[in-house]
Design a protein around this nucleic acid. Structure first.
Length: 478
RNA sequence: GGUGCGGUAGCCAAGUGGUAAGGCCGAGCUCUGCAAAAGCUCUAUUCGGCGGUUCGAUUCCGCCCCGCACCUCCA
């Protein structure tokens, strides 16, 4: 069964396969703008793309997938943030890039094979713009900015189906604030000292110094790293128009060939049934959630609970459900591991994409993933089969290794690291003292005293879990 | 107004022209000094509303109601 994925261009499910003879699947995913902490909505998209990349590696093999995700480090927002903080642009973008990487690591997202920055590819962007000017697809405005002439590209609107929109406006861009207009969008923005400070580069021939427009960076970096035609280009739905529409226009006019063979867009995350916004108090970053005591892995799980092409309603309750479900998954894995004395490390080593085709009882789950990345269905099958698996079957021991290898690979596809070593909060000495006291009381069969101490611990925010030979303490959740 | 996506149990969420996956929560039982953990069991005569097509619709069609998103620099 091949991997099939929805294609926004044809609005149908299409098989994913590398077009180039070298068999390498080329895949570009629009990345974040590094001017603040990314929110969990952003991460939904990146996690979905991470699952896709893992799936492709499982399918085509390691080294047969080239995943590129850019960092937008120069645009209105990054410049605005630098200005607001009165710091150099590079300092701001460096800081938030590091923050983004830390979040990605915590969420167990594999680093892309290349992570280009817009400022690292100014030359490439400038040359593309020059080609577009020479060919008559772009023109210089009076202030030295350069705009793409939408009317010069017949296929404009094909992706977003907005062709019939009122595109009949003039070819002259008269807007004074340098925003895109109906007939064109900015490829190059002339330097404006008051807004841009010292952020500027030499422009395309005949244009002023300034900085690139937003859309051109992806076209240039995709071309530079992956070539003129790529296998897949992805992003959130909001990028469908104008960003991706404009990328197609620029790239195809410049390169004279198809830009991307396949387009995929994941839907947005809703929080409490509505758009996330700071004023509604439902705006979460990963840090906000981990500060509440949730694990990053649970956040990842929660973001995969819904179909990627459907809006997903994220709530603190659903995150709690994710935390429990993940714990359940861990128990399931341990049941299999116990049967064949597999260690956590060994479980992890099974993760290597191996081309093994035996998916054992997890085949349906894996198939669901391959069928348009249906993560909720895959999770459903996973639990369904794990639940009905008979662990008491004595004739089965030799089979457990297949089960466990399959489960391990499935966990790799989802990107669930079941055995991450999480930093346990340090238990205050006073709490330990109380717990010791209670344990002693319990051993002495002073149950009334033990209960009183349990209550005291609870009041202090700790749960005491009694074991056979001792106790463990953990912070009370919620 | 244009374009697109949805409305399925207390919550989250799959799915199919043939009679509703899964997770969470909750309940009961076993276990347990208590608590936790673990195990077992149970939890939608019904899929926003009204019509239509059909032997049969939650699934197809029409209309209506409601929600969300995009419509020039938001993943």
């Amino acid at each position: 069964m091949p991997i099939r994925l929805h294609d926004s261009l044809t609005r149908s499910l299409r098989e994913l396969k590398p077009a180039q003879p070298d068999g390498v699947f080329r895949f570009y995913n629009c990345g974040p703008t590094v001017y603040a902490a990314a929110h969990i909505g952003n991460f939904r998209t990146f996690i979905i793309n991470d699952v896709l990349r893992r799936l492709l590696e499982l399918e085509f093999g390691l080294g047969k997938v080239k995943h590129v995700r850019n960092l937008t480090d120069v645009d209105d927002r990054t410049i605005g943030q630098a200005k607001a903080e009165q710091r150099p642009l590079a300092e701001i973008t460096k800081k938030w890039t590091a923050h983004f990487h830390a979040d990605c690591t915590a969420l167990n997202c594999l680093p892309p094979h290349a992570e280009p920055t817009a400022t690292g590819y100014i030359k490439e962007q400038v040359s593309m713009i020059e080609v577009l000017i020479e060919q008559g697809n772009a023109y210089r405005a009076a202030d030295g900015s350069v705009y793409f002439k939408v009317s010069s590209f017949a296929d404009y609107g094909k992706l977003s189906r907005v062709k019939e929109r009122e595109l009949q406006a003039t070819d002259t861009v008269a807007d004074s604030d340098h925003k895109d207009s109906v007939s064109g969008f900015a490829l190059w923005k002339a330097h404006k000292p008051a807004e841009d400070g010292d952020v500027k580069w030499p422009g395309p021939r005949g244009a002023a110094e300034g900085r690139p427009g937003w859309h051109i960076e992806c076209s240039a970096m995709s071309k530079a790293i992956l070539g003129d035609t790529i296998d897949l280009h992805t992003g959130g739905v909001d990028l469908l128009f104008p960003h991706h529409e404009n990328e197609i226009a620029q790239s195809q006019c410049c390169n004279g060939t198809t830009f991307a063979n396949h387009w995929y867009h994941s839907e947005h995350l809703l929080v409490d049934g509505t758009t996330m916004s700071k004023s509604k108090g439902n705006y979460y970053t990963l840090g906000d959630l981990t500060a509440k005591g949730y694990s990053a892995m649970a956040v990842r799980y929660a973001l995969l609970m819904g179909h990627p092409r459907k809006q997903l309603n994220f709530t603190l309750d659903s995150l709690h459900a994710a935390e429990s479900a993940l714990e359940r998954l861990r128990k399931i894995a341990q049941q299999f591991m116990a049967k064949c004395a597999c260690t956590e490390t060994e479980f992890s080593t099974y993760k290597h994409p191996s081309g093994i085709d035996d998916w054992s009882i997890f085949g349906l789950s894996y198939d669901a993933l391959r069928d348009d990345l249906n993560t909720p269905m895959a999770l459903g099958w996973l639990f369904e089969w794990a639940n009905k698996f008979d662990f008491s079957d004595q004739d089965k021991p030799y089979r457990y290794e297949f089960e466990i290898a399959a489960l391990s690979r499935l966990m790799f596809a989802f990107g669930f690291d079941l055995f991450v070593q999480t930093e346990k909060a340090q238990t205050p000495a006073a709490i330990t003292a109380l717990a010791d006291k209670r344990w002693a009381a319990k051993q002495a069969k002073d149950f009334a005293g033990a209960d009183a101490l349990r209550k005291e611990l609870a009041a202090a925010g700790w749960s005491m879990l009694d074991g056979k030979d001792g106790y463990t303490l953990e912070p009370r959740k919620r």
